[in-house]
Design a protein around this nucleic acid. Structure first.
Length: 457
DNA sequence: CGCGTTTGACCAGCGC
DNA sequence: GCGCTGGTCAAACGCG
């Protein structure tokens, strides 16, 4: 935050900002770089010196210069050149030897602790993987049972009935999801899915089951979830004085309506970043609180997104995938999406809700109650336990033409180093950050940036 | 002149 | 069948 917020807003050339999400505290932003710690070979180092600097524990008489000198001693074992050059050898000699031992012990302790933490992480990852596989297996079994049921009793009712019946039943979004085309990489099919740019899902064929690939259970479930999410909507509630949310995409207004029960007009936008992009959004102010802007996204982008747009898209798509996945049936019945939301989003337990009463499953992200704006969170790796490529809101994993120049990668989304998150923002990123007071959540395992937008100032 | 917004009309779905 | 409602279209309009 320091590097992004302290920089002059009128800085002509954007420099990479170092988000302080640093697992290993390599402290690039620490003012004192004389330690030259970057040459050390320990990859997963921790800044155990911060303890000394903070509370002086174990070395109460240290000042920073003395600490540096001692560390030089430790780094240059066998050579006293540095100490001689500083002219403080006699002062630090005895204290340095004792402190060197303390530091070595501390280093070993931290390495051991680091190893234990790694083992814990591995165990948690393994448990998560096994749980996920178990869930997918159960889902597949239930799906097969449902297919058998519909084959027996639902044949004369036709395909439309098949999907319509399921549409309103919580926990059966999987079947609803199968009713939509899955080939969204194809812009034309995506457009067709949205009604060819005219009407959304008004043709009966759009509701007919069209895709049931006999892939592995995992693929089948993932595809179904993916399709469901394409169908789903994500509603974002945020406080804003602006007429619309700036989410990084380009939108064209194509309609406005006064909806029932809300005196504020509802505006309809479609994405204009690419021809034929099926993504729509609706913007409406809350009837109860005019300061609250409700933005509802629908559809998938068929084009690459700029980083700023990817952030918002990641938020919506992640929420959709998480909560819709949580709405799928489990062995013990319906998994409570609120439970999942509070499990995976503990910092925002009241933020995410899901509605199955609407024609489409709708996820609502309430960002008007963000507890800690401007606070960076290091999320657990299982915060969003499902992959979310190109899901709702469209996290396009294709780079824009100049994406490589900005991110520095050739394949896929921006890759964040596990030990140091570095990211070069677009030219207006600082402005966006300040404008929205955006705290960032990094899901480092998924290489995902999640913008939690709090418009309230 | 091109592009985006506004706004009334139109259409489809749904409930009664 | 009718009316209500949500969603979209498209002509008119404004702006740079």
């Amino acid at each position: 935050m320091e590097s992004s917020s302290s920089r002059s807003p009128s800085s002509p050339s954007p420099e990479p900002i170092q988000f302080p999400v640093n697992l290993n505290c390599t402290t690039n932003n620490q003012p004192d770089q004389r330690l030259n710690l970057g040459k050390r070979k320990v990859p997963d180092e921790m800044d155990f010196f911060a303890d000394y600097k903070k509370d002086g524990g174990g070395a109460p008489t240290f000042d920073d210069d003395a600490t540096d000198l001692l560390l030089q001693t430790a780094a240059n074992t066998g050579s006293d050149q540095s100490m001689v050059e500083t002219g403080t050898f006699s002062i630090c000699d005895h204290r340095g030897k004792s402190q060197l031992g303390v530091l070595k012990t501390e280093l070993e302790k931290k390495n051991l602790e680091n190893q234990q933490l790694k083992e814990m992480l591995n165990q948690m990852t393994n448990s998560y993987d096994s749980l996920k596989m178990h869930l997918l297996t159960v889902l597949q079994q239930q799906k097969e049972q449902q297919n058998v049921h519909h084959n027996r009793g639902g044949e004369k009712e036709g395909q439309n009935c098949h999907s319509n019946e399921l549409i309103m039943v919580p926990g059966k979004f999987m079947d609803l999801g199968l009713a939509v085309a899955a080939d969204t990489d194809d812009a034309s099919s995506a457009d067709k899915e949205m009604g060819g740019g005219d009407h959304i899902d008004k043709s009966p064929e759009n509701k007919a089951p069209r895709l049931m690939r006999a892939d592995s259970p995992k693929n089948s479930v993932d595809q179904a979830t993916e399709a469901t999410i394409r169908k789903a909507r994500v509603s974002v509630r945020a406080r804003s004085e602006a007429p619309t949310m700036t989410d990084g995409c380009q939108w064209r207004k194509y309609g406005q309506k006064i909806a029932k029960g809300n005196p504020c007009p509802r505006a309809y936008y479609r994405c204009t970043m690419a021809t034929g992009c099926p993504v729509r959004k609706q913007v409406q102010r809350c009837a109860e609180d005019k300061n609250v802007l409700i933005t509802t996204y629908e559809g998938n982008h068929n084009h690459p997104l700029p980083p700023a747009a990817m952030a918002m898209a990641s938020t919506t798509s992640s929420a959709a995938r998480m909560l819709l996945s949580g709405s799928m049936p489990s062995a013990d019945g319906l998994i409570n999406p609120t439970f999942l939301a509070r499990t995976f989003l503990p910092c925002s337990s009241n933020m995410a809700t899901i509605s199955a009463s609407a024609p489409f499953p709708t996820v609502t992200l309430d960002l008007t109650q963000t507890p800690n704006p401007l606070q960076f969170h290091k999320t657990p790796s299982n915060q969003f336990p499902f992959p979310f490529p190109n899901a709702l809101g469209g996290v396009g994993y294709e780079e824009p033409p100049n994406f490589d120049d900005k991110i520095g990668g050739n394949d896929g989304p921006p890759i964040f180093d596990e030990t140091e998150v570095s990211y070069e923002e677009p030219s207006n990123f600082d402005e966006e950050i300040r404008r929205y007071d955006v705290p960032l959540i990094f899901d480092y395992e998924c290489d995902n940036i999640i913008l939690m937008v709090d418009y309230e100032k």
